[in-house]
Structures are given as structure tokens and as C-alpha cells.
Design a protein around this nucleic acid. Sequence first.
DNA 1: TATATACTTGAGTGATCACTCAAGAAAGAC
DNA 2: GTCTTTCTTGAGTGATCACTCAAGTATATA
Lengths: 190, 190
Amino acid sequence: MPRKPEYDRDDLIARARDIFWRQGWAGTSLKDLERELKLKPGSFYAAFGSKDALYGLALNRYAQEGVARLRALADRLGPLETLKAQPRLVIEASGAPAKACMLAKTYAELQAKDHELAGRAGVLMSEMKACFADLFRQAQDAGDIAPNYDPNRLATRYQSDLLGLRLSAERSDVDANEIAADIAADIDRL
Amino acid sequence: MPRKPEYDRDDLIARARDIFWRQGWAGTSLKDLERELKLKPGSFYAAFGSKDALYGLALNRYAQEGVARLRALADRLGPLETLKAQPRLVIEASGAPAKACMLAKTYAELQAKDHELAGRAGVLMSEMKACFADLFRQAQDAGDIAPNYDPNRLATRYQSDLLGLRLSAERSDVDANEIAADIAADIDRL
DNA sequence: TATATACTTGAGTGATCACTCAAGAAAGAC
DNA sequence: GTCTTTCTTGAGTGATCACTCAAGTATATA
């Protein structure tokens, strides 16, 4: 009997993710969202409940797609080449609204407030770290990386490097391609 | 003839820096500042003009003290040992209000808005990068680092690594000491 | 002591914040 | 067509934002 919504919910979440990713949590007002999503306040709150709830959905979507992209890459290239390619790919992503990692930006912005979304971002970063550790482990099993390294430690350092790289890539006075190449070169020395 | 202010301006700037550093630009309200600095709005605006102006002073102070600390360290340890010690020191700093770099947090938060303070943060990061490049150059001149490396490129990568390290150090699921040790170990391999 | 000068105080400004809700519009079920 | 259900609309909520300003207070100089 009911009427169907005029919007595509998944599409709205993806668009919201891009806005939040670029502008941050405090930097994005409901006015911004209403304008970009073409939703009046009533529809917005009927659909998502709150700004924070939508941010949470956007964050999950961001992380989920990141993991999916990494796994797809690993299926094509194998673990070692994936780890070597990721730094370059992550700063090339031409359609992305920002170079820096949305999880890191969220964590940095909201952690001091003990905001629930910071906790969520932390968990998602941890899951991403686990993905990297898996790849390092697989590369080790394949004999591409010396067996004396601890894959968890490698993953921790690798993720830290990626966070730095992606933040640096936002700067105009930094050649992020050089950093990406140097990170990839480090993988080869393991 | 006039009356003297009851506050120590330098001390207020340092305290404001700590608040901004921890909570960010949007995350710090004038109420926060008035409470922590024990200043009524009238005194605040007479002293600093605006929230942004005080943030600018705090940012300059942050960068200036960072450079001073690095130079002092270099005088004691020499360039190579300074570069090796810095990662550990920067995440140890027990009195600091946050592990992450205030310049990076400012840049990440405000760059999308084209805020003047983001530009300032970028310039200050660039100056810091130049300091690192100087140290790499000096270490090269001293024969501690092979001469075929480009000190500017080393500095870019090093700063990127430090940004990642300092962001990672805010996370409870990451052992930042391991990352710091690994960054220092990288210096030794040059 | 008298005066000039600046500092302190805090109520109050308009703007914007996230969010609500009642009324109107649209579409499937009958 | 009629009814029921949901979606859309947008004016309006109280709270908080950065900021102002006039009145009161303290102090160094004359």
C-alpha cells in the first residue's frame, strides 16, 4: 500500500561518505547534507535517524569497500605485489574526495571527545591492519618474505606508513609518488 | 597609568595550544577556552581578537618549540642520532596533550575548507621538513649516510613516517614503540 | 588625592547547530 | 474511486556558536 522513497538509500550513503570524508564530522553540517543529498530535514531523519547514524553507515561503507578492493587486488596480483601496489593505488584514486584515510581522519578528530564514532573508526582500522597482516603472512608462506619477520609487526608499520603517506599526499609541497615508491621498495627488502 | 593584565599572555597561548592540539579547531569552543584560560569573553577578545587568531598563535608556538627541540637535540647528539632518536621521543613525550602532530591535525581538519589556518599549518610542516632535510644532509656530510641519497627525498619520507607513527600512537591496539624502532632502524640502513 | 587608562565582567547579539513535527502529496490494495 | 500507508515538505524548536559592548574596577602617573 505504501509509497516508495524517491531516493536510492545506498547511493545516499555513498554520497554522504564522500562529503564526510572530505569535510570531516564537525565540518559537515546538516545543511550541507540536505543540499548534497537533496533531502529535506524530515526525509533525512526518517531515513537515517541522526547525523551520527549516517556517519556510522558511511564509515562502515568506506571500510568495507576498502577491504573489498584490497582482497580483489590480492586475487589478481598475489600478496606481495598487492602490498607493493597499494601505496601507489591509494594516492592515485582519482575519483576519491580526499587522499587521507577517512578512518584516520575520523579517529583524529573525535578521539579526544571519546566519541563513539572514533571507537568505530579504531575498530575498522584494526580490521584493516589484520588484512595487511594476512597478506604479509601469505607472502611469507609463498617464500617472498623472509620467515623471521613478524607479520603483525610488519602490518603495523605498513599501515602506519600508509597513513602518513595518505596524509602527506594532501600536501602540495610533497611528492607523494616518491614516498609511495619508497614504501614499496621497503617491501622488496624484506 | 594603565592597569596591568592579570594573566600571562605567553602562558595563555601555551594552554590554548594544548587545548586546540587535543580537541582540534571545531572541537574547541569559546566556552572551553574561557573555562580553561579563566578569561571572560571581553578579556579574551581584548587579548586575542578572535578564536582563529589565538589558534594561529598556538600553531606558531607549537611549530617553533618543535623546531627548537629538534635543534637542541641535534646539538647534543649530532644529525644521525637525532634522526634516530626523534621517533621515540615524539611518542614518549609524556606531558603532551596528544601524540599526533598538531600541524597535521590542523591541516587534515581545515584543508577542505581552504581555511587560512590549514595553509599556515602546511607552511609550518614544510619548514619542519626542511629541518629534517638539513639533518640528513649533515649526516651525509659526516659520512654517516651514503652520498647517493637525496636528502630532500629522505626528509619527505621521514616526515611522512613520523606523521603516521604519531597518528598510530594514539591507538590503543598499536605498539607505537615498535614502529618507532623500525623507523630508526631504517635510518641505520642508509 | 585626582585623573586617565586599561582590564574585568557578564548579559546579550544574531547566526547557525542538530533536530522535530504537523500537514500535504503520492502510490499500492481493495 | 477510496482508503491506508508512507514519503515529502519546510517552518520552527531550543541549544549552542563566535562574538560585542557598556558598565564597573583597579592601578600607575601627576
